[in-house]
């Protein structure tokens, strides 16, 4: 498999965010890759840098082009999309308008497809269809996450980056979200997943990286990583005891 995204020694030094020193990773076409690590390790910074929201050093290539100098909007137009931790929805606008705006980069070309994409998002998340004319700000936490995912899907992403999709969701909803992620991969979308819920992330992913204090310190196939003693101790169990439990 060829690498869709390849980041080599990414550095971000920006005083308002967690720093990034040497983060390197590859996302193969059609794979789910997860980045796990403690709070403050720089996971969100990594995604923001890949998205172009923060200036960074190092090299990043996506779909054969060098990302340096590409604007956020140009990256979106090329199918690199981010669902951020804070969701960043348009609270005053209706759910459907949020979704339509998700397809903003494509609107000049295809209007027919827009309707079809909208229907497929509604099919995926029926709750959104029920609330299509409601303002996004009135949605519950789980619905907001669905809307954020749906909005990103409207851009027809090739690589979808998800920052803490399970954040603040009840366990049942977390399961729904991870099922949706698995379904997306089946539909051909590659996924880069950042999660504090390491166990769930490693269950759904093919490959994983561990990010600590701004560096990727460990990588491997998701199953191997899930069994790695260091990962077990730090991220999966509360301590050695519970890892056994």
């Amino acid at each position: 498999m060829s690498a869709l995204l390849e980041a080599d020694a990414l550095r971000v030094f920006y005083r308002r965010v967690e720093g990034l020193h040497r983060a390197s990773l590859r996302v193969a076409e059609g794979a789910i890759v997860t980045v796990i690590g403690p709070n403050g390790a720089g996971k969100t910074t990594l995604l923001a840098a890949l998205m172009g929201l923060l200036p960074c050093g190092g090299r990043a290539r996506y779909a054969g082009i060098d990302l340096a100098g590409e604007s956020v909007e140009a990256r979106v137009a090329r199918g690199l999309c981010l669902v951020p931790e804070r969701r960043e929805l348009f609270g005053d606008l209706a759910v459907e308008d949020n979704l339509r705006l998700g397809a903003f980069t494509r609107t000049r070309r295809v209007d027919r497809q827009m309707a079809r994409d909208l229907e497929s998002v509604y099919a995926r998340f029926p709750r959104l269809a029920e609330r299509r004319s409601q303002a996004a700000g009135t949605l519950s936490g789980g619905e907001r996450q669905m809307l954020a995912l749906g909005r990103a899907l409207m851009a027809r992403p090739r690589l979808l980056m998800l920052d803490e999709p399970s954040l603040g969701l009840a366990p049942r909803l977390v399961r729904d979200v991870f099922r949706a992620i698995a379904a997306l991969r089946a539909a051909g979308v590659s996924i880069l997943l950042v999660e504090q819920n390491a166990r769930a992330a490693l269950q759904v992913a093919d490959y994983g990286y561990v990010l600590e204090t701004g560096e990727t310190v460990l990588e491997g196939a998701a199953a191997e990583l899930a069994a790695h003693p260091r990962v077990v101790a730090t991220y999966l169990g509360l301590s050695g005891q519970t890892a056994r439990a």
């Binding site: 399961r175 166990r199 769930a200 269950q203 999966l236 169990g237 301590s239 005891q241 519970t242 439990a245």
Partner: peptide
């Protein structure tokens, strides 16, 4: 006690 509390394990570790 916390580390072996089933409710805590579910909230924190609640896998798929």
């Amino acid at each position: 006690e916390i580390q072996s509390d089933p409710a805590v394990l579910e909230a924190y570790l609640g896998g798929l």
